[in-house]
Amino acid sequence: MSEATLLSARGLTLRFGAIPALVGVDVDLWPGEMLAVVGESGSGKTTLLNVLSGRLAPDAGAVWYRDPAGRLHDVHTMPAPALRTLHRSDWGFVQQDPKQNLRMNVSAGGNVGERLMAQGARHYGNIRAQALDWLTQVEIDADRIDDLPRTFSGGMLQRLQIARTLVTHPRLVFMDEPTGGLDVSVQARLLDLIRSLVTRIAAVLVTHDIAVARLLAHRIAVMQRGRVVETGLTDQVLDDPQHPYTQLLVSSVLNA
């Protein structure tokens, strides 16, 4: 593992029965950089995200995370409490369906404050103030703080999920199609938000939308049938694709 990487994976392999979901995948992620993982459905990109974040165990290969003290941890052999703590503090996970990651019967403020309380925050006033601050940052009206998420639109739910995830200032965020299923204008707003909030945070962003990758990511990895076929600087891979599949992918994108 290179000296400065935040997250590294080598030789990740995983089969679902006869289907090869991941075949010998290597990944490196440096602090503060966003890596987009693109590919069509079934390419293995969501599986890769789940393996990198410790939610799914690979058949072979390993994932290492470097903590703020510089120590390396094997994500899949670290003790369950440690991984859980990591997910609640240093790491964040933004799901495609925000309802998976929100408590629908808890107010917006409670949702944002939960990670703070899980970390030991015990001052109601401070928790509420931080929740208000984050709701404002994700452009949710401050007076919705006590409203239940079931009264929110899809875009608002996604922004609430982002607030809930970023409130503990994670160093590494995993994002699974964060703009999937949203209207185009809503997507634009969300992308703008991600662009401005996820600076100096390392992130792995899974998306099938190349335009999203181009807008947000420093580096891009292209997956096809469980393999990373090409990886590199985003604009270089998209403007000067080397691999046949990457060329196909790029040429298939409609330009508005």
């Binding site: 859980r84 609640r88 408590r103 107010s107 309380m117």
Partner: peptide
Amino acid sequence: SLADYGLMHVKLYEDLAR
């Protein structure tokens, strides 16, 4: 087992808010 009681504090927070 993980002493992960954030959820209970969320409930108390909700009471205070409501």
